[in-house]
Design a protein around this nucleic acid. Structure first.
Lengths: 180, 180
DNA sequence: ATCATACTAGACAGACCTGTATAGTATGAA
DNA sequence: TTCATACTATACAGGTCTGTCTAGTATGAT
């Protein structure tokens, strides 16, 4: 009798370790030890480490989509953007913040891997969210600038361990939607 | 008689491979093979791989400082910023572009490593450069926003393989210095 | 009661990793 | 000529990596 499925615990541990320590320095053995699971259980649920990485990113993408789905309820565009960046600022201030899991993973995985396709899909959703906010097409310069704000905020806040970079980016993002 | 010193060739190869493929997936053996150098020569010049990584970042930092030293000659602030981002756009369009070497390395190296200290120093220089541009202190919100522009531009342009993100960021950066 | 399913435990192969050690070569200065 | 310096070449130790394999256990449905 397992409290939760081996697969769920593996994904949970992989999420913690891949995000916190990095993907390449986190060995399979540490994941299965953290999950309290046998190695065979990992390879019964995932065909390879690459697939586990892709599943980790897929789960992260699902959580992100849940966030923006909730935000799309908000009618006012500026308010929607403000709440989005407020959520980023909140997570950047939380213990264990380590930047954007997709941007981080992009440094570590091969450009042609399954994982990288999930990363690209994330940016596609991000662009579409921003394009709804500014009510234009995803290839509008304003959307690109908002992506720059997101990415820069997460990256810089992580490296310099300074959540105020997110609030600075939030103010910048507001300026993009205001002056249009 | 060596054409160039073993140390120089090692640093050169490490720069190419660490930047292009990533730090953790690039083994020592591939570096010495690329440099055409014996393993002992590596460990005569660098005490460990960590030190080679730090030296790689140090060399990258030196090149960056050369760039902004040249830009500081330019009197007009907007022109200086424009040239800075033009240079980023140029490199983002060049073959082999892979984002900011410091931001990339920050994902792969330990937060307490010698390499990470070089990364922090890079951001310090970046902040000081921007603070000279906008003629304020490095902790001014405008400086933070410019850092966000830099980081976001490099990260997003790399992941999405789209140099136009840099030009979008450049326009955004110009807006920061204009409206003050 | 039988039997598929999902799991645990752990040995193992084969590759790759960093770093050390040994032995020999070329150069250039004193 | 002697000798330090810098280098090449390569074997090796000890570890870690991913992934496979064998063997055994618990559960729950039929």
């Amino acid at each position: 009798m397992t409290r939760t499925s081996a697969r769920a615990r593996l994904l949970d541990t992989a999420t913690t370790l891949f995000y916190r320590d990095g993907i390449n320095v986190t060995g399979i053995d540490r994941v299965i030890a953290g999950a309290g699971v046998a190695k065979a259980s990992l390879y019964n649920n995932f065909s390879s480490k690459d697939e586990l990485i892709a599943a980790y990113l897929e789960a992260s993408l699902t959580r992100f989509l849940d966030l923006i789905d909730g935000l799309d309820e908000v009618a006012d565009a500026r308010e929607r953007l403000a709440r989005f960046f407020a959520e980023l600022a909140r997570s950047a201030s939380a213990a264990g913040f380590s930047g954007c899991p997709f941007a981080n993973a992009a440094v570590e995985v091969a450009p042609d891997s399954a994982a990288h396709q999930v990363i690209v899909r994330f940016y596609d959703h991000l662009a579409r969210f921003f394009s709804r906010v500014v009510a234009t097409t995803p290839d509008d310069p304003a959307v690109r600038q908002l992506i720059v704000c997101y990415d820069g905020a997460m990256s810089a806040a992580k490296i310099l361990r300074d959540p105020s970079l997110v609030t600075a980016a939030a103010a910048l993002a507001q300026r993009i939607v205001e002056v249009r």
